[in-house]
């Protein structure tokens, strides 16, 4: 069980990081700064959402419910 919960922190950080990184890439490399803050912000939101979705999945896993 410790193994599962040790992933929470790292996955949360990396989800947000990947979101921001991809948005930054879109803004600065693909659209050359024309859309400057928007893709970064949108993908930041996606990253945060992914982090919380992962948290929710860990919390509602089937095999954790029946008293392990």
């Amino acid at each position: 069980m410790m193994a599962d919960f040790s992933t929470i922190g790292l996955t949360m950080a990396f989800s947000i990081f990947i979101g921001v990184g991809f948005g930054y890439y879109l803004d600065n490399k693909v659209f050359d700064g024309a859309t400057k803050p928007w893709f970064t912000l949108i993908f930041l939101a996606f990253g945060v959402a992914a982090a919380f979705l992962n948290l929710y999945r860990v919390a509602t896993r089937k095999d954790l419910k029946d008293g392990h």
């Binding site: 992933t7 990396f14 989800s15 990947i18 959402a49 992914a50 979705l53 992962n54």
Partner: peptide
């Protein structure tokens, strides 16, 4: 449109967290 990017991001986060841990 909401779930697809989130899922892809969480799959990418798996690569990072598994290797960097």
């Amino acid at each position: 449109p909401l779930i697809a990017p989130i899922e892809i991001i969480s799959h990418m986060a798996r690569i990072l967290s598994l290797s960097i841990r």
